[in-house]
């Protein structure tokens, strides 16, 4: 879409067409049946930031991620990646779905899953070269799974499966990483391994956005936070947006006052 067309269509929002902004969401609304799952969410994620999307179960966190990627249809609103619609900048974005969303009994090996991340650069019939396989191995190395390359994926533990998913995303060599619950149900060693990889991505100037469920680690792991419960409650730097008033509003009565008080303690 040219700038002129964009101005003609969305004159009031033209300021938002910012190639430096990895993801800008405007008025995003998604609905399953007649109940909205995400309602009119506006937010922007900053380049080189680590962002947590936080909210109770059913708050629309995963749905928001799927809707910006066009996996579930948007009822209204839109998402611009690096100032462009998703279709024109697909190769700069990597998505890691929830681990539980796939069948881990599928007959493929670990290396095959990582090679899926190179799909867009493979030749006709998806032939893989030595270079592709070396690249996939390097990605497995980064997540500490190099010894498992030939394993069938059904033989992996939950944490190992999550690392393989992360390795597949690394193979995509993207500028924006969208991860849906990358730390759900993983062991402590895997959590450390994943966080260290994500921090490396950030230090390379890439942007990392995670749906995150563990309120206790938001402060230590992330720079920015998006609090949602169908609607956006707050967004911005963790230091200011992740406060007890916003948390109370996000979780309603579901979060006790003592729990919130604990979260306000500086981490470490």
């Amino acid at each position: 879409m040219s700038d002129v067309e964009l101005i003609a269509r969305d004159g009031d929002r033209v300021g938002r067409k910012d190639p430096e902004c990895p993801l800008a969401i405007d008025g995003l609304t998604v609905s399953y049946g007649d109940k909205p799952a995400v309602f009119s969410v506006d937010t922007r994620f900053g380049k080189g930031r680590m962002v947590a999307i936080v909210g109770p179960n059913g708050a629309g966190k995963s749905t928001l991620m799927k809707a910006v990627l066009g996996i579930v249809p948007k009822l209204a609103g839109r998402a611009l990646f690096f100032g462009e619609p998703f279709e024109s900048v697909r190769s700069r974005v990597a998505y890691v779905p929830q681990r539980a969303s796939v069948d881990w009994d599928f007959p493929v090996r670990v290396i095959d899953v990582v090679l899926m991340g190179l799909y867009r650069s493979l030749g006709i019939f998806g032939m893989t070269s030595k270079k592709d396989i070396a690249k996939a191995h390097a990605c497995l190395e980064r997540v500490g799974m190099a010894d498992f390359a030939r394993r069938q994926i059904g033989q992996l533990s939950g944490g190992q499966q999550q690392r393989v998913f992360l390795a597949r995303a690394l193979a995509q060599d993207a500028d924006l990483y969208l991860l849906d619950e990358p730390l759900a149900g993983v062991d402590a060693a895997t959590e450390r391994a994943i966080m260290s990889v994500l921090k490396d991505l950030k230090s390379e100037g890439r942007t990392v956005v995670c749906v995150h469920h563990d309120l206790a680690t938001v402060r230590s792991y992330f720079d920015d936070v998006l609090l949602i419960n169908v609607r956006k409650i707050a967004d911005g730097p963790v230091a200011s947006a992740f406060n007890d008033r916003n948390l109370q509003q996000t979780y309603g009565g579901r979060l006790g006052a003592t729990h919130i008080a604990e979260l306000q303690q500086p981490a470490g």
């Binding site: 279709e87 697909r90 599928f106 899926m116 799909y119 867009r120």
Partner: peptide, 21 residues
């Protein structure tokens, strides 16, 4: 044969398949 890789990826992980086009 022609759609082998895309079929494999789409069957294993539909969301991911959609995200890479």
């Amino acid at each position: 044969a022609v759609f082998w890789s895309s079929l494999k990826i789409a069957t294993f992980d539909e969301s991911f398949a959609l995200s890479i086009g």
